[in-house]
Amino acid sequence: MAKNKISLIKEFTKGLWDENPVLVMLLGLCPTLAVTNSAINGLSMGLAVLFTLTSSSIIISTFRKIIPDEVRIPTFIVVIATFVTITDLTMAAKFPEISKALGPFIPLIVVNCIILGRQEAFSSKNPVGRSIIDALGMSVGFTLTLTLLGAIRELLGAGTIFQIQIMPDSFANWMVMILPPGAFLTLGFMIAGYNWINDKLKTQ
């Protein structure tokens, strides 16, 4: 029992650090690079993925024994697309401003490799509880990374984080950071930083 508990925690934390979907697996880079020009956009995208991934994982791990192997991919896609559409419509109806800012990237979650990847690699083989933990860990890792990426870009590119002024007035905004090249540069540095910290941790 104790052993099981430890591994559940590990199931959750692996998505945060060891198997971080963005920094280690480099999955879902399309929304990662495209929408993170501000912290709020990064966070919203993360939460949209969190909802989609967790719901799809619940459904798929529940019915994992019924779904025949031959049609598992189309079934997964239908389930994922359903939840993406739910997210898309709900956001458009309830939070039109955020929905407008994220534009086509909400519907594009359907082709986000993280989601299909987790179904294929995890929830189609594991019980519901464990699948939820795995999905939550992955999507929280994704959300945190995107929010951090968005915050760094927003700070350097607009002098603010979550629209709160951080930099002094004399700071000249680095426009490039909120443009696409800024996403590549920042992500590169984040991955480099991740590897550097990881090396330090390992050698200790």
Binding site: A172, N173, W174, M175, V176, M177, L179, P181
Partner: peptide
């Protein structure tokens, strides 16, 4: 190029 993209007006 970095300066041009960051501070186009300047």
């Amino acid at each position: 190029a970095f300066l041009q993209a960051s501070f186009p007006v300047k």
